[in-house]
């Protein structure tokens, strides 16, 4: 099964244009016989929205939602957008498949440090729920969610076969061997895939919002911690990797982290630590 990583540069606040770009990449992925396409965080809206958040938000019954559902008849895909629910606005990942919105992950960890101000504009998601699909069990994380390894751990405990990470990560920290932010995501994926024995598909956007550049560098890792695909930095592009449930099993035979995990002990320890907090 072939999975496509769609490393796009969304236009800030222009849903119509971005939707067309989604269609274009989905059709290109279909031509290459992919079964699933993953877009970055806020792929339909761009990242630095600020006061634009309520204006670009989509409701479950919005016309834009209908268009996204229709588009999923071509191929299933994960897209990022602003969801309005009960007058609250969430930074979400939507999984669209066969004309339906079949899963939503609301970003839990909203960064509010350095150049980030997401808590000012978004409401927080409340959980990490894995779900079953034709592509095995999936866990979705949005950008800063992924920088808290505990989020991936929760998907590990739910036996996720693949962790999908959608990102709009501003490029920063220029050093001798490249940007520290790019290395950070790659390091995380290497560790998470290897030690939680899952596929990791990380899709980061490119382009610029208000002087912040986004490096792309989208990649996928196998459940044994090997890199399967790496997209070029700073350029739009479509990358592919082969997904096979059998590889997850093989990884878990080689390295029985899940079998040896002591979730109950962790739970008790968390309870004790929280009591002493």
């Amino acid at each position: 099964m072939k999975i496509a990583l769609a490393q796009i540069a969304p236009c800030l606040g222009k849903i119509g244009e971005n939707f067309e770009k989604h269609r274009d990449f989905i059709l290109r992925a279909k031509e290459r016989e992919a079964s699933l396409v993953i877009f970055p965080e806020l792929s339909l809206t761009g990242y630095e929205l600020m006061d634009l958040v309520p204006d670009v938000a989509i409701k479950r019954d919005s016309k834009e939602m209908e268009n996204l559902k229709k588009l999923s008849k071509e191929l299933p895909f994960f897209a990022g957008f602003v969801l309005e629910e009960n007058d609250l606005f969430y930074n979400v990942s939507g999984f669209f498949k066969d004309g339906q919105l079949s899963h939503i992950h609301r970003k839990v960890f909203l960064p509010n440090y350095s150049m980030f101000e997401e808590k000012r504009f978004f409401a927080e998601g409340k959980g990490f729920k894995a779900f079953d699909s034709d592509f095995g069990r999936i866990g979705v994380l949005i950008c800063y969610d992924y920088l808290h390894p505990s989020s991936s751990y929760l998907y590990f405990l739910q036996k996720a076969d693949i962790i999908i990470v959608q990102s709009s990560s501003p490029t920063r920290g220029i050093e001798k061997d490249g940007f520290s932010s790019v290395k950070m995501w790659d390091n995380m994926s290497k560790v998470v895939s290897r030690f939680f024995t899952t596929y990791v598909a990380y899709v980061n956007r490119v382009g610029f919002d208000g002087g912040m550049g986004f490096a792309g560098g989208s990649h996928a890792y196998s459940p044994t911690g090997d890199k399967l695909v790496q997209l070029e930095e700073f350029e739009e592009g479509l990358g592919f990797f082969e997904y096979s449930r059998k590889e997850v099993k093989r990884a878990r035979v080689l390295f029985p982290a899940f079998r040896d995990e002591r979730a109950e002990l962790i739970f008790e320890e968390l309870r004790r630590i929280l009591n002493e907090y």
């Binding site: 630095e48 006061d51 919002d209 208000g210």
Partner: peptide, 10 residues
């Protein structure tokens, strides 16, 4: 608190 990106809608 009239907050938009420099690149808003361009």
């Amino acid at each position: 608190d009239f907050l938009y990106s420099r690149d808003v809608l361009t």
